[in-house]
Design a protein around this nucleic acid. Structure first.
Lengths: 374, 374
DNA sequence: TGCATCATCCAAAGCGCTTTGGTAAATTTG
DNA sequence: CAAATTTACCAAAGCGCTTTGGATGATGCA
């Protein structure tokens, strides 16, 4: 039997479950009475205020630990006026109800950071036409202290909307057409695709296909810009037949690659916006009896998804890599700071993708012949 | 330019953003004063209590709509003693910090249902050794009204723990060794893999490999049971060399498949626990110069992930399919009911997977010859 | 007509915290 | 040593709702 990893024993993993539970949940009044102190003092002791002697603070902390007293967060939230939660909206449309594949890793990164500061992550799944209403509701009802905007469009109305709402927010990505200043964390998509295109051009590829995301998405637009710039710099034009955009599924990658490679003047290389359509692209290449990395080169953008690592001794795909999980952490950091200090000036983080060479690229077939006979 | 889908115009998508905002957030006191009513009556009108005339209720509702009054949920939660939130814990371990690839689709399904009943989804990202503490904290602080347990182990301590805690919960999956009654939603994993194995046996395959998930996970155990039963029923034994378990990554699928097929007595068919390692398996098969569906047959379990659909005219993979998104919906339904009526008896839902035939299976090579020469 | 009933509404008391505005004792200061 | 601080605590007033326990006038019934 092959075991891919040594598993930690169950007993060890859940040892903490064995700790005895406090029978009844007590409130501050009872807890402070038990200590012979006023609720005021206990609250202050627990929250680190200075008007409490160190001896008392220690006594309170120890009793809380021993009796399992934890302040009720509903009461705390009302009293402090803070929700201690960050909102994320997951919009689903009826037609193509796909969850963004990077969503879970982004959430994992952001959530780690939230936990450190005691914030909950509040996720709202809504129909996409209800997204605006959701932000308004979240703000009005005071459900959250801030929100993260996912997947900005080129001219994204949500930014102005949230600005009006006065709810702190950070955008994962940018909106090119929005001139206002706002918090964002983005990958340098333009440069990443510029470099990736150049990399392929340097290998002798002249006809390079682009399997992009949906063009109303800002990131897809920037990537197309980088691609176009690189071609232009070598005096190459932009061929509509070599550019596709769509929702990033395996099927999309497969169908588009097959169509392009079956065209009259097929590309010798492809830029693919995500590892998922790239899986489809690889399937199409195989189906056509071609070899990836020889007949057709492929460069992907790799979000470093935890369930789909492009790793190994030599990665499967040559890639521009930028961890979406890290992006999540950065967004959380910025948002937490913005909430703590509303007067703080906006913060922007532009992450550079690294270009890592894998098995999926090689010299263009034309160049390959020259190299072989040279 | 190829467009994979017609995009709805931006203007339409965000038209709701244009609705004017209420300048100031008012509270119940102000709102009821504005109406010349007491807070009591307004609260009752808004919450559908009978002690309010229909005329007044209508007036209140219209004013609320017009002025954009929404009750503060922090206050509401304190007053009602309900958190109006369901907790999900996402444990990450330091070593293999993978997010379960089915997580986002499950969440999407559950979240849809939560929204219908006004529940928030509260997600806590914690280190896995802190998971127990998190449940206790969630319960003590009153952060949530119930929780969903993900990925139960064969003997999962969390179930007894939550039972003690008195916090309503539902398990996505089951724990074979736990005898207590509890709410769960599960796929009939045993039958699914029994059927899948039989399907391959009927095609003449005698040596069938199993690329399973981690064996401490309950679902992996049941799947192995189904596989073993099917072999046994045909008088075939269980060969350790043909059984692997591990975290379900592409890399795992690739490495394991390559190892098995390179063995002295390789399998002619594989059962793969998820589409993701199956992608790796396909890569390994290709790498070895073999053809999937001819030299090696592959049956997968397909969770019907929205970002990785096994569809098309003929699906890529023959699969036992069961939507994890549906499972999420069912879990949410059960939990919401359990919260509404704590005395309610436990509910269990066993989902049957459908066996759909795709391109990845065919007669065993031995049988193929007979068929061809027959 | 007189009394019980019902339909509507309201005042005030929570929910369990935090925080303001104190007080009394201990300590420092001139 | 008296006055001015400082230290360490507490009582009570919120936070913005829901909900209990009336109150008032309209209606039904004999």
């Amino acid at each position: 039997m092959i075991n891919a990893l040594t598993k930690s024993p169950q007993a060890l993993l859940y040892s903490k479950f064995e700790i005895a539970l406090a029978d009844t949940d007590m409130n501050l009044k009872e807890f402070s009475a038990h200590l012979g102190l006023s609720p005021t003092t206990v609250s202050r002791a627990l929250n680190g205020y200075p008007e409490v002697s160190e001896a008392t603070r220690k006594r309170v902390a120890e009793a809380a630990e021993k009796l399992g007293y934890l302040p009720n967060s509903r009461a705390k939230r009302l009293a402090t006026g803070r929700a201690m939660a960050i909102g994320h909206i997951l919009p689903l449309s009826k037609e193509h109800e796909m969850v963004n594949p990077v969503f879970s890793d982004f959430i994992a990164g952001a959530g780690e950071r939230y936990s450190e500061s005691g914030y909950d992550l509040s996720l709202s799944v809504v129909r996409d036409e209800d997204e605006a209403d959701s932000y308004r509701t979240l703000a009005s009802r005071g459900n959250v202290d801030g929100v993260v905007i996912h997947g900005p469009k080129v001219d994204d109305a949500r930014i102005a909307f949230l600005q009006d709402l006065g709810l702190p927010y950070v955008v994962h990505g940018r909106a090119s057409d929005v001139t206002a200043d706002y918090n964002w964390v983005d990958v340098n998509n333009r440069r990443a695709f510029f470099r990736a295109t150049n990399f392929l051009l340097d290998l002798g590829h002249q006809r390079i296909g682009l399997l992009n995301g949906q063009l109303d998405m800002d990131f897809a637009n920037r990537r197309q810009g980088g691609y176009r710039d690189a071609l232009k710099a070598r005096g190459l034009g932009f061929d509509d037949a070599l550019v596709a955009s769509g929702e990033m599924t395996e099927t999309y990658g497969f169908a588009t690659t097959k169509a392009m490679l079956s065209g009259s003047n097929p590309p010798t290389a492809l830029l693919v916006a995500s590892i998922i359509p790239a899986i489809g692209a690889r399937r199409a290449i195989h189906d056509l009896g071609l070899v990836m990395g020889q007949d057709v080169s492929v460069v992907i953008h790799d979000d470093d998804l935890s369930y789909f690592r492009n790793d190994g001794d030599v990665p499967i795909f040559t890639a521009t890599r930028s961890s979406v999980r890290d992006a999540g952490r950065h967004c959380a950091e910025i948002l937490i700071r913005a909430i703590a200090d509303p007067a703080r000036q906006v913060q922007n983080i532009l992450l550079e993708a690294e270009l890592t060479v894998g098995q999926s690229t090689g010299p263009a077939p034309s160049l390959r012949e020259i190299l072989n006979h040279g």
